[in-house]
Design a binder for these strands. Structure first.
Length: 634
DNA sequence: CGGTTTTGACCCGCGC
DNA sequence: GCGCGGGTCAAAACCG
């Protein structure tokens, strides 16, 4: 699975590159070369061309079907105007030119063949991936459900999950109405987040009832189940659009009922971790119980942006930086910032969805794992069954009084091995969140936490400009030299096997996003690749000048796996970096790694088809490992 | 000079 | 009502 998916990505990348190359070869590269190489021989080729016209499939000539051939002709004709110049050439040089033309054509043919081959690879890999994903669901879901019987619709539903709504923007919902509704009738049915995800990669569940729901509400009564489609129907895009139009900013701000916060714990040597956004410090306080001052920042990307963050060192471990995000950006974000923004938005939405149900007056239902996915499902997020069961809500007694429900993303866990990572979780114990209900997510990559985000928390934006942005959200900045050195020193200090790739700077975001994108991975991959390769040129919005992407973020470093099977098995070298170096998207941000799939090794897909035979546990571990490495190291 | 940071004052919610 | 603590404001200081 791990390798398979990586290969998918790499293959996909390669294919896309090839495609691009092939496509461009028709009009640019090859054409250009033709101008240099083929043109001189045109005149000489004229008899041949006539022959070609007479005998299109004449032996000895590469049959370059389609546009390339046409293009050659066109060029040939175009260059026929300079024929007299070349008529002066000697017969030997003509022969050379002829050979060059032949070689060029042959090369094009090879490229074409290779392209076809790679396409076939990609298709095969996609199929493998699908199969593996199904198997993965089969394996993971039982764990998630435990007592819940697995339905036979899983595969169907998995396929349905491939419908990805590609939108980016604020998605505030009329959740309060819904909440009221739900409160009265179906406490567990909250399916909408309360806060829109301005930067979230919205995965919209388009298909019919999802497996998530099934799993999310395993105990759901038939009546509830019957209501579920209704809930789904009450969440059509039109509603979203309406909400958007009506200005959910106002709605959000006018409803301070619960300002969800996303707390990110990560090991960070720098005063603040770089999430790609521009922040201005507007205050500092000594919080009770923590000698370290808490700094208050607000987003300055847009003057009216309501997003704020608090940064504070952990009292227990000064190396841990606790960053708490609050609010939703109301503006386009720099590419480098979309990841964190999406992450926090997703987490916030999760939290709101989950907490709201439990906080409903009269609702005795604790925010069990079942609740969350259901809530998320309706809105922008979708948690599959497995993730539901593993979603950890330590505080089951979310009080309605809490004004700041907090979800914590713990990136501080230190994996001792790829398969047994400590599951660091903390919640209300944390000073910043002590007053509020909290939800912990650890990205340290224990099985549960890793997969808890594994199903479509985030999806991919469809709008092209935003698509770029979203892809950018997957970017993993390559740390600058200084940072890298710090990281390396850390690795050395801890006697760790240094990874072969430079430290990803947007580790958190990348991990989160990638993890959350899992259920839609296939379609998203294709779309993203298409977008990236198609766009090719830039990474979208440039990094704000205030902070360099990789400047500070050194978070989650300890979550990096050591001597992973991934790195060893897949490729000895930094496949990610190798791709990334080639990535056209890196132009806008030197040193930035763009788009997650780039991290995937580009190797033969053999492991993909080989892995399905693994027993459940080993396979699961590998999957986890893959996720971990993929997201952390990409 | 404009933007950012610092820092004391102020506001507000909550608990007693 | 009062005190506490969190959060924000805004003037001054700082910086490039």
């Amino acid at each position: 699975m791990e390798e398979n998916l990586m290969q998918i990505s790499d293959q996909g990348d390669a294919v896309m590159k090839k495609e691009k190359r092939a496509d461009s070869s028709g009009d640019e590269e090859v054409a250009g070369r033709r101008e240099e190489v083929a043109a001189p021989e045109v005149e000489e080729k004229r008899p041949d061309r006539e022959n070609d016209d007479m005998k299109p499939s004449s032996p000895g000539k590469k049959d370059l079907s389609s546009n390339k051939q046409v293009s050659v002709k066109t060029d040939t004709e175009r260059f026929s105007s300079i024929e007299p110049d070349y008529s002066m050439a000697s017969s030997s040089s003509r022969k050379e030119q002829d050979d060059q033309l032949e070689s060029a054509k042959a090369e094009m043919g090879e490229v074409r063949e290779e392209n076809q081959r790679l396409k076939m690879y990609l298709n095969r890999i996609m199929k493998d991936y699908q199969n593996l994903q199904m198997q993965f669901y089969d394996i993971v879901r039982p764990d998630a459900k435990k007592s819940t019987a697995t339905t036979n619709n899983d595969h169907q539903e998995v396929e349905e999950l491939e419908l990805v709504s590609l939108t980016l923007g604020r998605f505030s919902s009329d959740s309060r109405k819904d909440d009221k509704k739900r409160t009265s009738g179906q406490g567990k049915e909250e399916e909408r987040g309360k806060e829109g995800l301005s930067l979230g990669l919205d995965y919209k569940f388009v298909a019919s009832k999802s497996d998530t729901d099934d799993e999310a509400l395993p105990n759901r009564s038939p009546a509830n189940s019957s209501q579920e489609p209704k809930e789904e129907e009450t969440w059509p895009p039109s509603k979203v659009l309406k909400t958007i139009r009506s200005g959910d900013d106002e709605a959000l701000q006018q409803n301070p009922v619960k300002k969800a916060r996303v707390c990110v714990r990560a090991r960070c040597d720098t005063p603040t971790m770089n999430d790609g956004c521009q922040w201005r410090k507007y205050g500092q306080k000594i919080a009770k119980g923590n000698p370290c001052p808490r700094a208050y920042y607000r987003c300055t990307v847009a003057p009216s942006c309501p997003v704020r963050k608090q940064v504070q060192r952990c009292a227990e471990d000064m190396s841990i930086l606790i960053t708490t995000y609050e609010g939703t950006h109301n503006h386009p974000l720099p590419m480098s910032a979309t990841a964190m923004a999406s992450t926090t938005s997703a987490a916030a939405s999760m939290l709101l969805s989950g907490s709201s149900s439990s906080s409903q007056p009269g609702s005795n239902a604790p925010p069990t794992s079942n609740t969350i996915p259901a809530n998320l499902h309706g809105l922008n997020f979708y948690l599959s069954d497995n993730s539901k069961s593993k979603f950890y809500l330590p505080n089951s007694s979310l009080s309605a009084a809490s004004s700041h429900p907090t979800i914590t993303l713990d990136l501080t866990s230190t994996p001792s091995s790829s398969s047994s990572f400590p599951f660091n979780r903390f919640s209300s114990a944390h000073p910043t969140t002590a007053r509020y209900p909290s939800t912990s997510l650890s990205f340290g990559s224990s099985e549960s936490n890793t997969m808890s985000w594994g199903n479509g928390l985030l999806s991919y934006g469809s709008t092209q400009p935003y698509m770029k942005n979203q892809i950018g959200a997957l970017n993993i900045g390559r740390p600058p030299a200084m940072e890298n050195s710090i990281y390396q020193s850390f690795i050395q200090k801890n006697n760790l096997n240094p990874p072969q790739q430079p430290l990803p700077t947007d580790t958190i975001a990348a991990a989160t996003k990638a993890i959350t994108a899992d259920p839609n991975f296939q379609s998203a991959l294709a779309a993203a690749l298409t977008s990236i390769i198609g766009a090719g040129n830039n990474g979208g919005v440039t990094q704000p000048a205030g902070e360099s992407l990789a400047q500070k973020l050194k978070c989650g470093e300890q979550t990096f796996p050591v001597a992973s099977s991934y790195s060893q098995t897949v490729k000895g070298n930094g496949c990610a970096s190798s791709f990334l170096n080639k990535s056209p998207s890196t132009s806008s941000q030197p040193g930035s790694l763009m788009f997650l799939p780039s991290s995937l090794p580009f190797t033969t897909p053999k492991s993909a088809s080989a892995s399905p035979d693994k027993d459940g546990e080993a396979w699961k571990v590998e999957v986890q490992d893959w996720f971990f490495h993929k997201f952390i190291w990409s």
